[in-house]
Design a protein around this nucleic acid. Structure first.
Lengths: 225, 225, 225, 225
DNA sequence: GATGAATGAGGGTTCATTCAT
DNA sequence: AATGAATGAACCCTCATTCAT
């Protein structure tokens, strides 16, 4: 049988694949750890047979990584659609942060993805491998979106022209990652506190304030000449 | 036998524990994944019997997490000693970044630690549990060092007084984490490229430049009134 | 070193051996299982080093089996001393049962011994092997005592002469074992009930009544012509 | 999968469970020790994969104890069917003893069961726990059969009415256990002698004679007024 | 002699993957 | 196509035994 991976044109994913992806995301959002997530857990949650998963994927790692990539691309697609409706660079950054807020509220998928970028685990290695293989003109990546936001900002004369785009895109990513970390962290602390698990890092600063601060920093830095 | 955990005053760690810690660190630096690191791998590298590890630790997870915490504290202790020899706030931040450079060159321990802060894995859970249990006045944490650097900077009149210390310490941490991520990333790309593994993120910006940029950003932000 | 086993002339057992034996007996009486009793448990209880036990015994099995045999012989010796002070066959049987009562109150050593006679375990095999090797004119066995009680009864004209001694000794043993089982059982039920563990066998008959019944049965059977 | 324990209605035991039970029984009958019987031994003998055993049972202990309980119940069921075909109390007791003879010839399962009743081992504890949990109106136990034999004997006017049923049932059990012990013992001696292992207890009395003696004792005792 | 730290063989258990139905 | 029962490799952990001190 020609194996139909989850990568085949996103619009026509087989329904079972969609349910597998959904199951992985759900489990992560419920606090499961991708490193020890079991195939039986996933297929059970997806409501399909264990063997069926292997009609679409070759290994446990593939299921999880493709699910996360699908999640990422969907988020990027959704963001892509909304982001160009916004009028200004500043509004676009805010939307980016809104999106992170929503993700962080829902769970840890974003964090998983960020961690996979450098993790030495099988999952991390596969993630990077696939990302490289399937990258076509960076079409699918959030980083691409960030780059285009910067380009658009420059083209519209909203932000400075004297720094390389790649440079600015990286800074934007770093700042947004910092925001994401803080937000995810904040959410995690709240959740874990609710469950009675103490967490050592202090988070006295409200998310909103930190958000304003980060946004202010980006604008100041990108608008300064 | 009263089990001697690796937490007992660092100066008198049993030699086998030191070798176990060293083995874990070495393996991480060679690219091993802590989630799938085997006890036999660790003890073999440490040159001791498998059972011996269980004279000092109760589980595989403990060995790894204590090793990383020991690494972290040692790094903090080393930094602590050097950092107050520096005359200015700015020099202290630079030393911090030097230290990160050194760590990043050596390997992925720092990254492991950063990831453990929120990972849902057993390792992550144990890490947070131990960190909470053993935290006494935050004496052992890098975050404490960052806070004290900020306090000293304020006391010396080098940085602004109008923001809460906790706030500034967090920002400092975020910026340094951003730097650490970038540096670790850069190193990882170089290493992985050398090993033939492509990596998708572009890193055209030299580390030094990014470093200057981050440092400049901290100073500007902390000195502005 | 000439290994000094616990079997060497009973009067001069090295003090460490005595403590090892005592530890095994204690642990059994506290409900430990000889099949899974650990050497470290025994030596710890005996208050001696683990290695020291191996100066006197070659294996874990030896320690336990010798301890039980020592216990058995001591019980037989004690009984031996008292039993001939009794005037009649009937009084001697009663003393036998008293002794069982005392043992049953203290614990499960008697039961362990009874089980070892046929158990397929390493312990059982070693027990039978040693019993055979060391048996000299059956000097050390309870069964010998039973035989002599029967012989004395016949000699004194208290019991019938028309059955073979071996036969009557076996019947005596069987009846006493039945009594021992019931008593041990009764004690066990009481203990386990106190600990909340239900036990399925009904024990409505008081020990005393069963005792009277067994004694009556022996006398009737042995006196009948 | 809903775990299917070996307890589910005996008629529809999954074939693998039947084979596991058979393997345990076989091994015991070949002289294996249940305390040290390995899962791999059992599954190998059963001709199934090691992991498969864990689809039906949670632990090694469960496999063994359920196997023995199944054996016990099957023996009781078989006996149950035959026993009421016999016309008299005396014939029923003889059948009981025949059954024991057959078991004793086959092996040590009966002995294992008897020992488990009071053993402190994990196996013993589990055995008692399960026996209590699953006992419904004592439907499945040999002891129930003994009680009903007594009741029937009384109802038919074959045995005395002046003793409590529970009392007589216990005496019956004790006598039959004595017979079982002797028989098993005798068989064991023969087997072990054949294997060159000496056995210390004398068994000069032929089984048949002891059997006649025990049966006579029961009848005399139960018929006497 | 006495110790207990060190060892490593061994076994219970898990779970990714397969394949007959 | 879909299933889930079956598999067995892999790995954590225990503990009897040794031996340097």
């Amino acid at each position: 049988m020609a194996k139909i991976t989850g990568r085949e044109s996103a619009g026509q994913l087989p329904p079972k694949v969609v349910r597998l992806y959904g199951a992985v995301i759900e489990l992560i959002e419920e606090g499961a750890d991708i490193g020890s997530m079991k195939v039986s857990q996933i297929t059970e949650r997806a409501g399909i047979g264990k063997g069926t998963a292997y009609d679409y994927f070759d290994t446990r790692e593939e299921i999880i990584v493709y699910a996360l990539m699908f999640f990422m691309e969907e988020a990027a697609r959704n963001l892509e659609q909304e982001i160009w409706e916004k009028e200004t660079f500043s509004r676009r950054i805010e939307l980016f942060m809104d999106s992170i807020d929503r993700q962080a509220e829902k769970g840890a998928c974003l964090l998983c993805l960020v961690n996979l970028v450098f993790e030495a685990s099988d999952l991390g290695q596969l993630f990077r491998k696939l990302l490289n293989e399937h990258r076509k003109e960076e079409a699918c990546l959030l980083s691409s979106l960030e780059r285009r936001i910067v380009e658009k900002g420059i083209a519209d004369g909203e932000i400075r022209k004297d720094l390389p785009v790649a440079y600015m895109a990286y800074i934007l990513m770093a700042k947004i990652v910092a925001y994401a970390l803080y937000t995810v962290h904040h959410q995690a602390v709240d959740k874990k506190s609710a469950q009675g698990e103490a967490i050592f890092l202090k988070t006295e600063i409200p998310c909103e304030e930190f958000r304003r601060y980060i946004l202010g920093g980006i604008l100041e830095e990108f608008q300064a000449e």
